[in-house]
Simulated assay, not measured.
Amino acid sequence: MIGIKIDGKHTSDFGLIMTGCEIASPEPITHMISIPGRPTELDLTESIYGRVTYKPRTLKFAFDHPQDTTAKFQGLLAYLNNLYHGRRVKVIIDSDPGWYWVGRMSVAGSKDKKGLANFVLTLAAEPYKYAVLSTLDDWLWDSFSFRTGVIRNYKNLSIPESKVITVIGSPVPVTPKIKVSKAMTLVVAGKSFSLAANAWQRLAGVKVGREPTLFAFTDTGVVSIEFREESL
């Protein structure tokens, strides 16, 4: 039965039948400055972070549930409220199984005279959705999209003396972390990093986005590059 998973539990476990799914686009955070004598405002939206940022967005999921008594409806509503209302949860939509959303959930319910109960689960979500798998996880083909998916496996890569690794990043640029088996030097995006052995290190100032990024390593060792895709 089509629905959603909330913190690993599927809505079909409650007998809920999904009838609607609404995902609002997030509102951009703009930075406009009025300058005397200038006919239009100065748009500095991308100047602060180098890209557009967004406000939280709303996801709404509508469900039906056959109920023959008001008491049963009230019992299920109370059960869902106790589980999820006001709580921060992780949601995976069946139709988009490779990604998850994070946000605070609210629960609402009503019942008509014919015995049909309606429930609406609303998620006040972060603007981005996150890939279920990171670059260190084993790939699951049942959730892989052959239309838009990219296989990213950057775990325990062998570096013979020196090597350039092409990293395919995220639809929304993210900062990767890296771990090496022995001290070595990395050059990426015109910046040089001295990497210590056996410790996760975040590459400050480096973002990996849609375009391939070259990671140039020197010396011999084993390298892991970790990040999780983000997308609107």
Score class of each variant (00 low, 15 high):
Met184Glu: 06
Ser158Trp: 05
Phe217His: 03
Ala216Trp: 04
Val208Arg: 08
Arg202Lys: 15
Lys163Gly: 06
Ala183Lys: 12
Lys179Pro: 02
Ile159Lys: 01
Leu214Phe: 13
Thr166Ser: 14
Pro173Asn: 06
Ala196Asp: 15
Thr185Asp: 15
Ser181Pro: 04
Pro173Asp: 00
Lys182Val: 10
Leu203Met: 01
Arg202Ala: 15
Trp200Lys: 04
Val208Cys: 12
Ser192Lys: 14
Ala199Lys: 08
Ala204Val: 10
Arg202Tyr: 01
Thr213Lys: 10
Arg202Val: 15
Lys182Tyr: 00
Val180Met: 03
Asn198Tyr: 04
Ile165Phe: 15
Lys207Gly: 05
Gly169Met: 13
Ala204Ile: 06
Trp200Pro: 08
Thr166Asp: 12
Lys207Thr: 10
Val188Asn: 06
Ile178Trp: 00
Val172Asp: 05
Lys163Gln: 11
Leu157His: 05
Thr185His: 06
Ala199Phe: 04
Val164Leu: 09
Gly209Val: 05
Ala204Met: 03
Ser194Ile: 13
Val172Ser: 07
Arg210Leu: 14
Leu157Lys: 13
Leu203Arg: 01
Glu161Asp: 12
Val164Gln: 14
Thr166Val: 08
Thr166Phe: 02
Lys179Gln: 02
Glu211Gln: 11
Ser170Trp: 05
Pro173Ile: 03
Lys155Trp: 03
Lys155Val: 05
Gly190Arg: 07
Ile178Pro: 09
Lys207His: 11
Thr175Ser: 09
Arg210Met: 15
Trp200Gln: 05
Ser162Glu: 14
Ser162Pro: 04
Ser158Cys: 08
Thr213Gly: 13
Val206Ile: 15
Thr166Trp: 02
Ile159Pro: 00
Ala216Gly: 01
Asn156Gly: 07
Ser194Cys: 10
Glu211Ala: 14
Val167Tyr: 01
Val208Tyr: 00
Gln201Glu: 12
Lys177Arg: 13
Pro212Phe: 09
Ser170Thr: 05
Glu211Arg: 13
Thr185Met: 14
Asn198Leu: 04
Val188Met: 03
Phe215Arg: 08
Pro160Leu: 10
Val172His: 02
Met184Trp: 03
Lys191Trp: 07
Leu157Thr: 10
Ser162Leu: 03
Leu195Met: 12
Gly205Met: 00
Ser192Phe: 03
Ala204Phe: 06
Val172Glu: 11
Leu214Ala: 15
Val167Cys: 04
Pro176Thr: 08
Leu203Glu: 01
Ile178Gly: 02
Val180Cys: 11
Ala196Cys: 00
Gly209Leu: 06
Ala183Ile: 03
Leu186Phe: 09
Ile178Glu: 01
Pro171Tyr: 10
Ile165Gly: 09
Phe217Gln: 09
Ser181Val: 07
Leu186Thr: 12
Lys182Ala: 11
Ile159Val: 15
Gln201Trp: 02
Leu214Lys: 15
Pro176Phe: 00
Val180His: 00
Pro160Ile: 14
Ile178Tyr: 02
Pro171Ile: 11
Lys207Trp: 11
Val206Cys: 07
Ser170Glu: 07
Gln201Tyr: 00
Ala183Tyr: 03
Gly209Ala: 08
